[in-house]
């Protein structure tokens, strides 16, 4: 017994080091698996509050640009309004089943391999996990964790992110992923070989998930190649959104989410 205690006292530095190191490793591994990082995230009271107050100063500098963006969007919406027959093919939200909530981005990252954004709306504004986040230009990510006043968004620039996407011309669909290299490009995988691809084609979200409505723009095809099995295309997509510069976002709430979920789980 004496021996064991002596051993502990002699090696206390190393043991403490080992303990803390393993603890941080476990946190790291947790954060690498989707939806599992429990306490260490920037959507909590302390870090969210600090980001919020700093961001409120920074927001003044962007006012001019934000105004221009709003004008641009207004123009687009007006042109849709005046050309009613365009309604069907437009990129406007296709049905009233979706509700939009606006929020401010208070923290954005894009240089790591797993990027997250923090926004200043949370469960108090009826926001929960697994809601889609978009801007007027296109897709941003999916809400992954929500606290009272803040929530964390899993950016499309995250190697864990998987979003259903399809071509605008045809209904061939695949999965949108990111390889961690450049914030300007994301990858679309599992597009069947039969799909007629040309660079410059637009890629939009597919309606196959309950998170995003169909038709949110993502980006344009910049290059594509067949994968090792030669059955599917790997497509490089240049995103419409400048992911390094995001101020206001819209959160998409699917009003029929519960109903669809119930229906899908009922046959299990």
């Amino acid at each position: 017994m004496q021996q064991i205690i002596n051993f502990f006292i002699r090696n206390k530095n190393f043991l403490l080091f080992l303990l803390l190191f393993l603890f941080s490793l476990s946190l790291t591994i947790q954060s690498h698996s989707y939806h599992r990082s429990k306490f260490i995230n920037s959507a909590n009271f302390l870090t969210g509050g600090v980001y919020e107050s700093v961001n409120s100063i920074g927001r003044y500098f962007d006012l001019r640009k934000e105004n221009e963006l709003l004008l641009e969007e207004n123009n687009r919406l007006k042109s849709i309004l005046y050309n009613q027959e365009d309604m069907l093919s437009s990129t406007l939200l296709p049905s009233v089943d979706f509700k939009l909530i606006t929020a401010n981005v208070i923290k954005n990252s894009y240089s790591a391999t797993n990027n997250y954004l923090t926004i200043n709306k949370g469960t108090n504004d009826s926001i929960s996990a697994d809601l889609g986040v978009i801007t007027s230009k296109g897709i941003v990510g999916i809400i992954d964790k929500a606290s009272g006043n803040y929530s964390r968004v899993l950016s499309i620039l995250n190697t864990n992110s998987r979003v259903n996407a399809q071509l605008m011309k045809t209904d061939h669909f695949g999965t949108l992923t990111w390889n961690g290299d450049s914030p300007r490009y994301v990858q679309l995988i599992d597009i069947p070989k039969q799909a007629p691809l040309t660079s410059g084609d637009t890629v939009i979200t597919g309606g196959r998930s309950i998170i995003f409505p169909k038709g949110i723009p993502i980006g344009t095809i910049s290059s594509f190649s067949l994968d090792e099995t030669e059955n599917y295309y790997n497509v490089e997509i240049e995103v419409f959104n400048d992911m390094t510069n995001i101020g206001h976002v819209h959160i998409v709430i699917n009003k029929n989410k519960e109903e669809i979920k119930q229906l899908e789980s009922s046959d299990e």
Partner: peptide, 14 residues
């Protein structure tokens, strides 16, 4: 906590 990076900074610092 601020950077949403799990425990990578903690591990490296320790």
């Amino acid at each position: 906590l601020f950077l949403d990076s799990g425990g990578v900074h903690a591990a490296a610092s320790v």
